[in-house]
């Protein structure tokens, strides 16, 4: 457990902030940390920035823990454990199409920056959001080919980000690699498209987690029985195809199934 002081807070949108901490986390894009606020809760958050001196977490305000975090100021302390889990592969040579839905852009922005450091600028970064105001990282990613889709057409193309993905996949026949993070039903559509066009992919999943080290069984995925905290959160297309609950249901804190639709 590291007790770390917040050194910088960036307001990304009205409900998303990025918090920066001065610590060499030695993380890879796609990995996560457990963030603890004593007396409130501890939850997993994927890492959105790590340059070896500072790391950042991009957080959507949606519950008791994040409500409290959003009230915190520079020099306030949080508890950090990690990094945990398996991140994205870093493939220096292939054309990447990144599909980010909502705050799913967090780990993908980190991945894009790592790829650029490794000399791979061949990235189409697709961001989907409700509207212009809820788009993340358009400034931070200004040196990458950004492809935007919004529900209301207030920025970029009006419509679904998955249509954008199809257009890029079918534009030419060169090899491509898809990485995605976002709402699970969007990810499921991305997986279906990757299967349809036989394109390799890595998908960053989300499940309720407790221990982070593969013992409590809370994030065990049907029917493989693997714990997402240690076998994921990033899984390959092959593994995602074997996860029967993917896009169908997840489990609440009690372990009771909750269906997406």
């Amino acid at each position: 457990m590291h007790s770390l002081k917040i050194t910088k807070i960036i307001d990304e949108t009205s409900s998303v902030k990025t918090f920066y901490f001065p610590h060499n986390l030695k993380s890879r894009p796609g990995q996560f940390v457990m963030l603890w606020l004593p007396g409130i809760d501890q939850k997993p958050f994927s890492i959105s920035f790590d340059d070896g001196r500072t790391f950042g977490l991009t957080i959507f305000k949606r519950g008791a823990l994040t409500d409290k975090l959003f009230e915190m100021k520079i020099n306030d302390r949080v508890g950090i454990d990690g990094p945990y889990g398996v991140g994205f592969s870093i493939k220096p040579d292939i054309h990447h199409i990144m599909v980010a839905g909502g705050y799913g852009a967090a780990p993908l922005a980190f991945l894009a920056e790592e790829l650029i450091i490794k000399g791979n600028n061949n990235i189409d970064f697709c961001i989907g959001a409700k509207n212009k105001d809820s788009l993340l990282f358009t400034q931070r990613l200004n040196n990458i080919r950004l492809r935007i889709a919004t529900d209301d057409g207030s920025s970029g193309q009006k419509g679904l980000i998955t249509d954008l993905l199809k257009n890029i996949i079918t534009a030419d026949s060169r090899p491509k690699f898809i990485v995605t993070c976002g709402p699970e039903l969007m990810e499921k559509k991305v997986l279906d498209i990757c299967n349809q066009y036989n394109v390799d992919a890595e998908i960053c999943l989300e499940r309720y987690m407790k221990c982070g080290v593969g013992i409590c069984g809370q994030c065990a995925m049907d029917d493989l029985g693997i714990c997402l905290c240690t076998h994921g959160p990033v899984v390959t297309r092959e593994v995602a195809n074997k996860i029967k609950e993917f896009g169908v249901y997840h489990r609440e804190k009690s372990g009771k199934k909750k269906y997406f639709i």
Partner: peptide, 24 residues
């Protein structure tokens, strides 16, 4: 639902847990 997190701490020689009997 069991207890709120943190519910498990894993160390070199021991694991400490208070999951709180969460179950469906």
């Amino acid at each position: 639902p069991g207890h709120p997190n943190p519910v498990i701490i894993s160390k070199k020689y021991y694991i400490l847990n208070a999951v709180g009997l969460s179950n469906p």
